[in-house]
Amino acid sequence: MLKYILLRGLLAIAVAFTVSLAAFFLLNAATDPAQAIAGEDATQEVVETIRARYGLDQPLPVRYAQWLGGVLRGDFGESYYWHKPVAELVAERAGTTITLALSALFVTILIAIPLGAFAALNPNSWIDRVALGVAVSAQAVPNFWLGLIMIILFGVMMPIFPVSGDDTWRHFVLPAFVLGASSVPAVMRLTRTGLIEVMGADYIRTARSKGFRSGALLRRHALRNALLPVISVLAVQLGQKFGGSVITESIFAINGLGRLALESILGADIPTVQMLIFVFAIVFVAMNLVADILNAALDPRIRIG
């Protein structure tokens, strides 16, 4: 098991740094950082001065090696836009995004697992069709559209929740629902499929013959076994919430990492964008690693393979 974790961990680190390498070269190829800092009306002399000041006159491989060396030392560079250390910017807003991601995951669990359970207990019925319809609708609706609908319904027509900011728990209700809804289809379908398979197992039929009701079977036996693969999927979904928070945080004016990423892109703040991509990649890869470890712990055949 330890060897499996080490191998998966090394692979995860390699993937994260590959993402950072690709992002670094693509960001620097898409725009001239010196020109973006100086502004469109700046003279060539000013642009060249800024280029020399920030070391932008060096080759890209040298600059990437310097950035990577700084990351390994804990130095993430300085923001061109905010003129402060990138690590400080990330630390200031990380807590908000973590709160939003965990809240969204809670919404996913609260909606998807009961829907999947009801659909599995009533296969091919109207309940099953309604549950699948909700899943398909949630998958088809983009976050920005759902966010705007939530603002109109619960911020304008029925002003129940605040629609901007992150001061209290009430500010996270609507954005958590919007961000969590996108994960409902995958978790619901997996719960439904797992429960249908488990409910057809021999030990479930034996328990039914002994007089156990469907509710008791679901709570004591079926749900516990059917949710084992769902747990690992939820770990991956949590990692996706960080990258997916860009649109949601922008719509609801939440000062998290997602909004910081959008502001950095609009301000051509390459050091901040580069660091945020690296952070999102690390979180996503880490959650995938957690999912792999959970799968290996629950299914010994994976470790053997």
Rank of each mutant, 00 (worst) to 15 (best):
L146W: 10
L105W: 07
L110N: 07
I152E: 06
A104C: 11
Q139P: 03
A138I: 02
I127A: 14
N122P: 03
L100S: 03
I152V: 10
I151C: 10
I113H: 12
L146Y: 10
I98Y: 02
G95E: 15
G133D: 09
F154P: 05
L121F: 04
M150H: 01
F154Y: 03
F118W: 13
A117F: 10
S103F: 12
S103P: 07
L153I: 07
W145P: 00
R93F: 13
L132K: 12
P142Y: 02
N143F: 01
L105T: 11
N122G: 01
E92M: 15
A104H: 05
S125M: 01
T96H: 07
F106E: 13
L102S: 04
P123E: 02
A120L: 01
S103I: 00
F154S: 07
F154E: 00
T96G: 02
P123K: 00
I113N: 06
I111V: 12
V136R: 08
R93H: 13
A104I: 09
G133V: 10
S125G: 08
V107N: 07
I151L: 05
P142Q: 04
A112K: 08
S137I: 06
T108S: 14
T96Q: 12
G95L: 04
A140T: 08
G116P: 03
I109R: 01
V141Y: 07
L110Y: 00
L153C: 04
A101G: 15
A94Q: 14
A131C: 08
A119C: 02
F106M: 12
G147N: 06
W145E: 03
I149D: 05
L110P: 01
G133E: 14
N124L: 13
A101C: 10
I149R: 04
D128W: 11
T99C: 08
F106W: 06
A140E: 01
G133S: 08
R129I: 07
G95R: 04
G95I: 08
A112D: 14
A120V: 12
N122Y: 07
I113Q: 05
V134A: 14
A112F: 04
I111L: 12
I113L: 09
M150S: 07
F154H: 03
L102M: 15
M150N: 11
L148G: 00
L146Q: 06
T96A: 15
L153A: 11
A117R: 04
S137M: 13
I149Q: 03
A112H: 09
I152G: 00
A140D: 05
L121E: 10
G95T: 07
L100C: 12
I113W: 02
A120E: 10
T99P: 03
D128M: 14
M150T: 01
F118M: 04
A119M: 11
V141T: 11
L148K: 03
L102V: 14
A120P: 08
T97V: 09
I113Y: 11
L153P: 01
L105N: 04
S137Q: 02
A94W: 08
L102T: 13
V130G: 09
F154Q: 00
P123M: 06
A119P: 11
A120R: 09
A104F: 13
V141A: 05
V107Y: 08
A117P: 09
V107H: 05
S103R: 06
G133H: 05
G116I: 03
L148F: 05
G116E: 03
L132M: 14
S137H: 01
A101L: 05
G95V: 15
S125Q: 15
P123D: 04
V141L: 15
T97M: 09
S137C: 08
P142F: 11
W126N: 09
A117V: 15
